[in-house]
Simulated scan of single mutants.
Amino acid sequence: MTHDDFSRKNLTALPNLLTYLRMISIPIILVVLAPPTTGYRMNVAFVLYVMASITDYLDGILARRYDMVTSVGKLLDPLADKLLTCGVLIMLIELDKVHGWVVFLIIGREFTITGLRSIAASQGLILDASRMGKNKMISQTVAILFLLLHFEPLNRAFFLIGTVFLWVSIALGYWSAGAYFVDFYRKARQLHASRRSAPTGP
Rank of each mutant, 00 (worst) to 15 (best):
M1F: 14
T2V: 11
T2Y: 09
T2N: 13
K9I: 13
L11E: 06
T12C: 12
A13Q: 09
N16H: 05
N16E: 04
L17D: 02
L18M: 12
T19I: 08
Y20A: 12
I29F: 08
A34T: 15
A34G: 07
T37P: 05
T38S: 00
G39D: 06
N43M: 01
V44D: 00
A45R: 03
Y49T: 11
M51S: 13
S53N: 05
D56I: 04
L58V: 14
L62T: 07
A63F: 07
R65N: 11
V69M: 10
T70K: 05
T70C: 02
K74E: 03
L75Y: 09
L76D: 01
D77A: 04
P78H: 06
K82L: 01
L83S: 08
L83E: 04
V88K: 06
L89K: 04
I90T: 12
I93V: 09
I93D: 01
I93G: 01
W101P: 01
V102M: 05
V102K: 06
V103N: 08
V103M: 07
F104E: 10
G108I: 05
T112E: 04
I113Y: 00
T114D: 00
L116A: 06
R117M: 00
S118E: 10
I119S: 05
A120L: 03
A120C: 02
Q123S: 09
Q123K: 15
I126L: 09
L127E: 02
S130V: 12
S130R: 12
R131P: 11
M132K: 13
G133Y: 08
M137T: 11
I138V: 14
S139P: 07
S139F: 15
Q140H: 12
T141C: 14
L145F: 02
F146S: 00
L148P: 00
L149R: 13
H150R: 05
A157P: 09
I161Y: 06
T163I: 14
F165I: 07
L166W: 11
W167A: 05
W167F: 15
I170M: 10
A171W: 12
L172F: 09
S176M: 03
G178H: 08
A179D: 15
V182A: 12
V182C: 04
Y185C: 12
R189D: 12
A193H: 14
R196T: 13
P202V: 14
